[in-house]
């Protein structure tokens, strides 16, 4: 059971669609990924999830964050040259899967090789291959809390080929804008209000030492550049 609800401990198959509308038991929407071989006790109650193995979720999450950012960056500006459909496929994929259709891979340079390694189980295959039938979803699916999160109602977009996450994906433009914004190390919303992209701050060679009100940064130039 690679996914486990962090609230009630219920386990789910890898890629299970059940999680898309929240945990059927408790409605929780945080799931911990348990790598293969991890021992999970399915506890009914508030008992917290069992530990994953040492190679676990943390590195995976960081990698995933980086991959999402990379995907969006390589997917260019909001009106970039990549078809919208393609871009959001990449975005969805970066979350958990590998491309099943060769035509998708040609357009997505950022596909990670290591994503293709894991064997997929039936839940994954089903999640990738099928559209969720309306009766598979809880009857109160488009609830108030979901619309807050801007999920689309089932079947809003019947046209494109079968893609599993379609019916529950967040609004694409908004997500893309958010990730594009996050790509900046520090975004100045207005003087005194800042958003920080920690991965970018960590990754960059230069060191931002002072912010100015007009949005300029003072940086410490790496020695290698300065000496030239």
């Amino acid at each position: 059971m690679p996914h486990q609800c962090t609230d009630c401990g219920r386990g789910f198959d890898d890629g299970s669609k059940e999680m898309l509308s929240g945990c059927p038991n408790c409605g929780g929407n945080k799931f911990q990924y348990q790598p293969e071989g991890a021992d999970i006790s399915e506890t009914p109650d508030a008992e917290p999830p069992e530990p994953p193995g040492p190679d676990s979720t943390v590195a995976r999450t960081v990698g995933k964050t980086a991959a999402s950012v990379r995907d969006f960056v390589s997917g260019s500006a909001p009106d970039g040259d990549r078809p919208a459909e393609q871009s959001h496929l990449d975005a969805d994929r970066s979350a958990d899967s590998q491309p099943s259709d060769p035509s998708h891979t040609s357009g997505s340079p950022s596909t990670e090789p290591d994503r293709t390694s894991a064997a997929e189980d039936s839940a994954q295959a089903s999640a990738r291959g099928d559209i969720v039938e309306p009766d598979e979803l809880p009857s109160d699916a488009p609830s108030a809390s979901e619309s807050e999160h801007q999920f689309r109602p089932v079947g809003a977009d019947p046209d494109p080929p079968a893609e599993p996450e379609q019916e529950d994906r967040p609004d694409l433009e908004e997500l893309r804008a958010e990730l594009n914004d996050q790509f900046e190390s520090i975004k100045v919303l207005e003087p005194g209000q800042y958003e920080l992209n920690l991965m970018e701050l960590y990754d960059r060679e230069e060191y931002i030492i002072a912010l100015q009100e007009d949005g300029h940064y003072s940086i410490q130039v790496p020695e290698t550049i300065r000496s030239e």
Binding site: S185, Y194, L196, Y202, I209, A210, L211
Partner: peptide, 24 residues
């Protein structure tokens, strides 16, 4: 005061950038 709060906010942001750089 607002001015102090804005300055504190800016310094805190610089501080996070510094902390992340140190971590590297």
């Amino acid at each position: 005061e607002k001015d102090d709060a804005v300055r504190r906010s800016r310094e805190a942001t610089e501080g996070v950038a510094e902390a992340m750089h140190w971590l590297r």
